[in-house]
């Protein structure tokens, strides 16, 4: 068969992708980026600055505030290591922490499906109370809506948070320089695999527990330790790889990492191997990557290892190499990392 441009119209192109929301629009990959660029960014006139971090700085003088918002739609609602309530609190305070901000207050809005068990709602709310206490933040405002049966998947929670920025210099991708070390605060892949295992009833033994946890503790330890922080990013949706690619694009650098340096627990590795899923792209809810000044590498690592022994320097920031955002060395060979397209799906055989 040869290439015949004239017959292009006969190609089996999926008819849907142009005009309807697909699951992948929420996956944190290319389609999410496109949705932000084509729908939200023009509508709300976000500046490039607004879009480069997990939260926006809104102060004008004196102490600056950070503000962020997030919606939580996880299924199942309860999973080993947490539930939608702990995610809703930690997710939002962690977005603040990534700007170096101490969380001050959080609001929470609930969309609840008719027929949802009150006992489950109480469990979720009690978890949120405990999570907020752990993160040192108060839930100060809320809202509740109930929708008809079938119009929501149990409960959705949206939280917003305000924090006070504690670092003296702005922590953002543009501060990243060639030569900066790339540190990850612990082992990766727990949350995404815990949720997938719970959702699909994959009985891994022992069960994989979500890593969801507040991150301002280690961040403030870095700030208090005088570490020159250039960029912090929590490795949530899209995982470590996506976080690094986004930073590299904003900073116009290439980030080089080594597979052998990245810590992944055996249960998570095993689950990923079985399912054919790349742990680099699996969500975390209690891990972040810190890019710090070159001279602070060892001190920053020591501080982070006090919070989690698995913290590790996994790579280094390099001058931009063409179109490569990030690259990884595996068996002595190196390949580029790209944003994933769509959801990660388990392999067939």
């Amino acid at each position: 068969m040869t290439f015949r441009p004239a017959s292009y119209g006969a190609c089996p192109v999926p008819a849907n992708s142009a005009d309807r929301i697909e699951m992948a629009h929420g996956g944190g990959g290319k389609l999410t980026q496109r949705l932000i660029d084509t729908v939200f960014k023009p509508a709300f006139a976000f500046s490039e600055e607004d879009l480069t971090g997990d939260s926006a700085a809104i102060g004008r003088s004196g102490s600056e505030l950070a503000f962020t918002t997030d919606a939580y739609v996880v299924q199942p609602l309860f999973f080993p290591g947490g539930n939608i309530g702990s995610l809703a609190i930690f997710g939002t305070v962690n977005d603040l922490a990534m700007s170096g901000a101490r969380p001050l207050a959080v609001s929470a809005a609930f969309v609840i499906e008719e027929g949802f068990a009150l006992a489950d709602l109480i469990r979720i709310v009690e978890t949120m109370r405990d999570a907020a206490a752990q993160a040192g933040v108060r839930v100060v405002a809320g809202d509740t809506k109930v929708v008809e049966r079938g119009k929501a998947d149990g409960v959705y929670i949206a939280t917003s948070g305000v924090g006070e920025i504690g670092s003296r210099t702005p922590i953002r991708p543009q501060a990243v320089r060639a030569g900066d070390p790339v540190i990850v605060s612990g082992d990766i892949g727990r949350h995404g695999m815990a949720v997938m295992a719970a959702r699909e009833s994959l009985g891994f033994e022992p069960p994989i527990e979500s890593d969801c946890a507040p991150l301002f503790g280690p961040v403030s330890a870095l700030i208090d330790g005088g570490i020159e922080l250039h960029c912090l990013r929590d490795c949530t949706r899209g995982g470590l790889a996506t976080a690094l690619i986004e930073i590299a694009r904003c900073a116009d650098v290439t980030i080089a990492i080594k597979q052998a340096k990245i810590r992944i627990s055996d249960p998570v590795r095993g689950a990923c191997e079985i399912l054919g899923i790349d742990p680099l792209y699996v969500a975390n809810e209690g891990r972040f990557t810190a890019i710090v000044a070159g001279g602070d590498a060892d001190r920053a690592l020591t501080i982070l290892q006090r919070h989690d022994k698995a913290a590790a320097i996994i790579g280094v920031v390099c001058e931009r190499e063409g179109r490569t955002d990030a690259k990884i060395e595996t068996i002595g060979t190196t390949r580029a990392l790209d944003l994933q397209t769509g959801e990660q799906l388990p392999r067939i055989c």
Binding site: P14, I245, R249, R323, A336, D338, L339, T341
Partner: peptide, 30 residues
């Protein structure tokens, strides 16, 4: 591309075209 595949080999996680796209192509700008 994987978002607009013209054939199955670009879609599947085991497809050769998808493998080349993912690992053998400098990523496009966002």
């Amino acid at each position: 591309t994987p978002e607009h595949p013209l054939g199955a080999t670009m879609v599947s996680s085991e497809g050769a075209c998808a493998a080349y796209y993912r690992y053998r192509r400098a990523p496009e700008a966002a």
